[in-house]
Every structure is written in C-alpha cells, then in structure tokens.
Simulated scan of single mutants.
Amino acid sequence: MSLRHGRGLVHLAASVDQPGPLDVASCTELARLAERGGLDFVTLDDAFARTGPDALAVLARVAPATRRIGLVPTIAATQGEPSPVRAAMAELDRVSRGRAGWRLDVSAGMADARPLGTLPPAEALWPQAVDGADLAAQWWDGREGDAGNGHLANGRCPDRGRPRDGGRTGTALSLRDPSVLPRPSAGRPVRVVDAGDGRAGTIAARYADVALVRAVTPARAAALGEELRVRAVEFGRTPNSLRVLVSLLVDLGDGEYAAERGHGGGGPRPTARGPLYRGGPVDLAELVAGWHADGAADGFHLVPVEPRRDLERLVNGTVALLQHRGLFRTFYPGSTLREHLGLALPADRPAVTGGAP
C-alpha cells in the first residue's frame, strides 16, 4: 500500500541562485516574482568562497519585501556553532512571520574548500549537520508556554532559555548553551534535505519536512518517495509529515517551441548537475501535470538555468497553465510556510537521545 501524501494540488518551489556574490536586490526581485506565481518557497544556496553576505542574511533582508512566499536558505554543517545559526533562523522566522525554512546540507562550498584542505568528506560531516539540526529542534520544540505572548496558561513566564533535557551531548555539539531564543511562530523552521544516497537519504527520512529527490522518470521519482516514507515510518513518523519534491534543472530558453527529444516531451535528461528539462513553459506544464497524475511526487523544486528569464517564463507560462487546469493554487490560503505545504505544527517532544543515524 502506498504511503504517499494525498494528491491534492501540486507543490512548487524554485531556486533564486545566481552566479557571483549574493545580491539582495536581485534576490528580492526573484522572490517577489515567485511569490506572484504563488510558489510555496524559494531556496538560496551558499558558497564557501563567495564574498558578501551569506544566504541566511540575504533572505532576512528579502523577508520584509515579501508577504507570503517561504524563504529557505542553505545552511551547511561547516558554518559554525549552532547557537548563532539558531538565533539567525529565529530572526528570519520573526521577520518573515513564520515563512522560514532551513535547507540542511553539508555540500555548500565543498568544491571550493576541499582544494584548500579545510573540509573532510561529506559523509564525515553529516553527523555534525544532524546534531545541529536536532539540537535546534530541541531548543525550539522543548519550550513550554505560548510562543505568542511568552506566558504559560497560569500567567507565569516560562524559562525560554532551558530545554526540557539539558544533558544531551552529540558527536560535536552540546546543549549547554544559555542562549535565550524565541520559539518560531510555526514551531520551528521547515527543514528541507536533499535526499541523496547513503546517509543523506536516512537524514531526510528522519528529519526532513521536505525531501528533494532527483529522477528522470516519474516511476523512479515515485519509488524514491515511497522509500523515504517507509523509512520515515520506521523512525516513528507519519507518512503525511513528509513532502517529496523532484528537484529539476529547467532551461526555458526555447520559449514556446516544443521540447527537445529527451527533455520536456520525452522526460528530463540526466546531466552532471542533475536531471535537466529543456523546452518551453507549455511543455513543462505538461510534464508537471503528467508526473503529478502518475503520483510521482508531491511537487517540484525547479532550478532555473538563467534565473530571471526562466523564472519569469515559469510564472507567466507554466504556473498560469497549471492554475487554469486547477492543479495549482491561485492564492495563498495561509501565511506560513507550513500552511503552504499542508504540514501540521510540530508538537513539543522530548529530547532525542543518541547520535546521528
């Protein structure tokens, strides 16, 4: 029996990555364009050698210029201790009013850093990344009281700086931190994980709210999603607590012309950067609708080859066609990223014991 989330509407997200240093004005422009199309969220990656502000800082400045779209920066395991990350994520959630997400990764900047001898292999970094994410969840999930007014039902102010269990120690990180951080309005930021092979897939099944998979056929995408949900159940989760999106590079430079053989009309083509669709927005809408009808995934995370051009064609062409068919929202029914994704608020839970899987 399939554990897949009920079909419903398609979920769509997009990358707003651009070459060169991160630019707040450009990212704001792209995020507002994606918001005009009703997309669930946008992602922004980091690079180890990139100058200027990091992805989290940029999206914190994008947040006041947007109203509904989710904002999901990539935060790598190599970006320092968890306390500043928790504080920055809490601030992003505050200024976005519940639209913050956290793309947990270890690969950001590894291509730049490895020649300098500054990073170990990715498999060695995943335990540290998991400890950071789980530690943050304990601080956010383990508080008592109403996060909105800062008081318990009996009128007493809770100790916001104290998790329920302060004794857990991970492989690299510790809960012994007196930071006083507000609990995000949606419980905690939505966690997005690239569900690759090995440890990354296990991490996605155990921790992710949104798992990104790469596939060139709907059958393969469906199999990957089913495997993730089975493993999620083994970790004590419900299948409905996980959304699976196909991550797809898109090149819409052919405008309204038919997709090349082996791309849009015949399915994406594998490349060194991942599955690639090349064609027009009409064919992309056909691909999304077809895969959705086949039950391949809950939606797509689209990575434009040329951000401004492709995102504009995605919104004005592909999204408009999907809306016309009743497959994608025409307005945001809620205000938080969890509402966009149809995810329940996380309940308070006891601290997790033990290290990373």
Rank of each mutant, 00 (worst) to 15 (best):
V216D: 12
L287T: 11
A223C: 11
M110I: 14
G354Q: 01
L302D: 06
I75R: 06
H5K: 15
V62R: 00
P19R: 05
A347Q: 14
Q79L: 04
D46A: 03
D105S: 14
A219G: 10
R188C: 07
G295D: 07
R176G: 12
N149Q: 14
I75A: 11
V190G: 00
R325G: 09
R206D: 10
A222M: 00
L39H: 03
L71F: 02
D348S: 14
V233C: 10
L71Y: 01
G342T: 02
L343D: 02
V95T: 01
Q18Y: 08
C27W: 02
R273K: 14
V303W: 07
V303T: 15
F235I: 01
G267I: 05
R164V: 13
L337G: 02
G354Y: 02
T74A: 14
P19L: 06
N149R: 09
E286G: 12
S107G: 10
V42F: 02
D112A: 15
P182S: 13
A113V: 09
P82R: 10
S83I: 04
R114E: 13
G280H: 03
D348V: 09
R349V: 05
H340L: 06
R156V: 10
P163R: 05
A31S: 14
S26I: 08
G37P: 04
T238D: 15
P304L: 00
L228I: 12
V213G: 03
G236Y: 00
T217A: 09
V230H: 13
G264F: 09
A100I: 10
V233M: 05
R86Y: 01
C157T: 13
L284V: 04
E260M: 13
V305S: 11
V130K: 02
A186V: 15
E234T: 09
L44V: 01
G326Y: 10
F41A: 06
R168D: 12
A285Q: 01
S241D: 13
R68G: 01
T78C: 14
V352P: 08
G196I: 00
S174C: 04
V192P: 00
R338M: 05
E144G: 11
D146F: 06
E339H: 12
R273G: 11
G170V: 00
P64R: 08
A344V: 08
S2V: 10
L322G: 00
S2G: 08
D93G: 10
F41P: 02
V246E: 02
N154W: 12
F48D: 06
R313G: 14
L287M: 13
A296I: 01
S247E: 12
P307G: 05
G37A: 06
V282C: 10
A200K: 01
A356K: 04
A57Y: 07
R94T: 09
